[in-house]
Amino acid sequence: MAELTEGTARVKRGLAEMLRGGVIMDVVNAEQAKIAEDAGAVAVMALERVPADIRRDGGVARMSDPALIREIQDTVTIPVMAKVRIGHFAEAQILEAMEVDYIDESEVLTPADESYHVDKWAFQVPFVCGATNLGEALRRISEGAALIRSKGEAGTGNVVEAVRHLRSITSDLRAIAAASEQELFGWAKRLAAPYDLVAEIHANGGHLPVPLFCAGGIATPADASLVMQLGAEANFVGSGIFKSGDPAKRARAIVEATTHYQDPKTLIRVSENLGEAMVGIEMDGLDQHLADRGW
């Protein structure tokens, strides 16, 4: 029998590569998970409250009840992801033992550690982490993250922060691709990121070493198209689906828009008669910016 190796970086990043061009949807129960799968989601994120409700209710937001996650795992055939608090490796150990397919070390939950993120190399299950800029993305990758997503501003239905984060990351990637060998040291210093990762980006023509997805504020098919055109490779959609008037229809529309993001005809067709989008919040009206959590 050939020797089999589990939990390699390639296997972890590989699952993220398989999710490309797809939509990962936040769901709070098995019924929503089924709606998401029916609509063509490539994965679901199991959580107790969508970010819009976490924002409204306040209090400490934690890992979901394992029973809820189990119920969702039993309902769908697509990958099931779940969130842990920043730095809460014990929550991550529980999710790994439950064989969750991806763990999101998420700023949407209340951080558990003000100094350290989870050492993600210590786990066999892959991790996704949020980032607002390239330095943050590379620090998470150096800790073992196999997938990076923009943080955006979760639970607002407002895409402006996700756009800011994606633009910041992709413009620095382009600049590093064009930089001289000498300048790479300056980039590592400026980004507060490992030189080796900066050099890797330079060598491979300006690509992040792991896939880059978008999260935080996507509410419409046009939002999905916008962030894909800005360099996202797939979309996480949270409150935007199940806080809208017709979740099943909107979910399906965002799935098609993410695939055909460059085709205005499809975007017109899927955007028609979608019903109410989630109301959304202006950034100036926010009491708390979740994207400021983590560093």
Binding site: L4, T8, V11, G14, E99, D101, Q124
Partner: peptide, 26 residues
């Protein structure tokens, strides 16, 4: 199995000569 059981292995493929690194993901 699920993602934690995803794995890599060297496989001998008929007609290809040297083994191939095969990555199995879910």
């Amino acid at each position: 199995g699920r993602q934690v059981r995803s794995f890599e292995a060297d496989l001998a493929v008929q007609g290809l000569g040297e083994t191939m690194r095969a990555v199995f993901i879910r």
